[in-house]
Design a protein around this nucleic acid. Structure first.
Length: 454
RNA sequence: GGUGACGUGGCGGAAUGGUUACGCAGCGGAUUGCAAAUCCGUCUAUCCCGGUUCGAUUCCGGGCGUCACCUCCA
């Protein structure tokens, strides 16, 4: 079955055919590194990681190139460095490390290239020069601005009507702008703010130009997929598209635009003032990263997602079950279940894919060995699950908390002895004692196993 | 004010012009010394009002409601 993807540009589901099957190119907007990644940052990473895995399967791992940037020059970073009174590089290095660790915990593969904005200043300057030369940008008052009326198609990607937007605009217009909609490509820096020398003086790039410059540098003028959150469609992606298409020529840039839906927490927009702000780091204290991953995938990527703790508990229960079924089972690519794969190939229908996984789990639970292999293959090769053993999974503890497994085993042995002596009162007492510590015992045919209650 | 998305059973969540997914929870059973785990069985749904149709949850119109964007945001 052919891969179909919803293209935000055309607002339809289309058959995906790469420009060059030997080099399938995907660019996803990565984080601005100034603080811990929140669960809203994790959604596009997990969604596009799932797509990345599927593309690698379809075209070969060596024929897919996935670029996800790190934006390490931004006024939010500058503000944070000032607050903490540390060098900017400290903030960006620390936050980048945290981001990598958190995304790895979610079983997200690292991208093939991870360009940094500060490493591409020269490319940004070159692109700005090209925009000026082509009449799409102008220098004014130390700034360089993109002239929006120079691009007739502006607003098409995000479905905005420029005139209507201006009618409802609440922003003050800077005096140096020729048009209210014009946006900054380059802006001046003072001594306290990071900057680089440029034809327009000492300064730093505007928000959108880094993605245009980096996608060009690593993927070329035209590439296959551009992804990110729907909140970025305006102004970020609209402006990226404007810059790139005007600098490189009409018709260049991404063939497919993909946007994941918004993320809410407990039914509301996540924000610090609402008290429902969740970092990935905080959530990894409640459940293993794979559970968070499956939770993210349990809603179709284009739908709004409502994050709840109850949802986390539910996927944890599901994975407890699946892990038991695939324990000791090995699978190879031949076991990849066609049903799960077909669901993913239909615009990444992960909820349907998970439903097909449940069907396999049902069959595996009845003792079908091929179903167990397919379940494992579906998790391992498609959804990015089963990265640990069943024991590791069932014994999982939040980072920093270590269980004394030897002590638990000693209690289990004592209980086995009591049971052999038919002293059930003592056996039950030991079991209750362990339950009070969050340890659940399971008497099976091969002996007594235990798991951590969640 | 402008724009967009969404409204499916207790909860999560797909699909579909007609045959009422799937999971979690609940309930009943098997199993177990009792549990847990596992297996079997099982109840509950398509926001409201019109229209098109032999038939709509699905298409069209209206209404109500929720969320978001238009300013930093994944």
């Amino acid at each position: 079955m052919a891969l179909k993807l919803y293209n935000s540009k055309t607002r339809t589901k289309q058959d995906f055919a790469p420009i060059d099957p030997a080099r399938v190119r995907m660019y996803v907007c990565g984080p601005t590194v100034y603080d811990f990644a929140h669960i809203g940052n994790a959604r596009p990473v997990v969604v596009f990681d799932t797509l990345y895995r599927l593309l690698r399967l379809n075209y070969g791992a060596d024929h897919v190139i996935y670029a996800r940037n790190i934006t390490d020059v931004d006024d939010k970073i500058n503000a944070r460095a000032r607050e903490e009174n540390v060098p900017i590089a400290d903030i960006t290095a620390r936050t980048t490390d945290q981001f990598h660790a958190d995304m790895a915990a979610l079983n997200a593969l690292p991208p093939d290239v991870e360009p940094r904005a500060t490493g591409h200043i020269a490319q940004m300057i070159a692109m700005i020069e090209s925009l000026i030369a082509r009449g799409h940008a102008y220098a004014a008052d130390g700034h360089v601005l993109f002239h929006v009326p120079s691009m007739p198609d502006y607003g098409r990607l995000s479905g905005r009507n420029v005139k209507e937007m201006l009618a409802g605009a609440r922003v003050e217009v800077a005096p140096y702008k020729r048009d209210e909609m014009d946006f900054v490509l380059w802006k001046p820096s003072d001594d306290q703010t990071p900057g680089w020398n440029s034809p327009w003086g000492y300064g730093r790039p505007g928000w959108h130009i880094e993605c245009s410059a980096m996608s060009l540098a690593h993927l070329g003028e035209t590439f296959d997929i551009h992804g990110g959150g729907i909140d970025l469609i305006f102004p970020h992606h609209e402006n990226e598209l404007a810059q790139s298409a005007c600098a490189n020529g009409p018709g260049t840039f991404a063939k497919f635009w993909m946007h994941n839906g918004y993320l809410m927490v407990d039914g509301k927009k996540m924000s610090k003032s609402e008290g429902n702000f969740r970092t990935v780091r905080q959530l990894l204290d409640k459940a293993p990263g794979e559970a968070l991953r499956l939770q993210i995938l349990s809603t179709h990527y284009r739908q709004p997602f409502d994050w709840t703790d109850a949802g986390t508990r539910e996927v944890k229960t599901v994975l407890d079950h699946w892990y038991r079924l695939v324990d000791g089972v090995t699978a190879d690519a031949a076991d990849i279940p066609a049903t799960v794969r077909a669901a993913l190939e239909d615009d990444l229908n992960t909820p349907l894919a998970i439903a097909e996984m449940h069907r396999l789990a049902h069959a595996a639970g009845q003792g079908a060995p091929d179903a167990a292999r397919q379940l494992r293959a579906g998790g391992e090769f498609l959804l990015g699950l089963f990265g640990m053993t069943a024991d590791q999974w069932l014994h999982w503890q939040p980072p920093g908390k270590a269980l004394d497994e030897a002590a638990i085993q000693a209690r289990i042995d004592a209980r086995i002895a009591a049971r052999k002596a038919k002293n059930f009162k003592e056996a039950d007492r030991i079991r209750d004692e362990l339950v009070a510590q969050g340890i659940q015992l399971e008497d099976g045919p091969t002996g007594t196993l235990w798991k951590v209650l969640s």
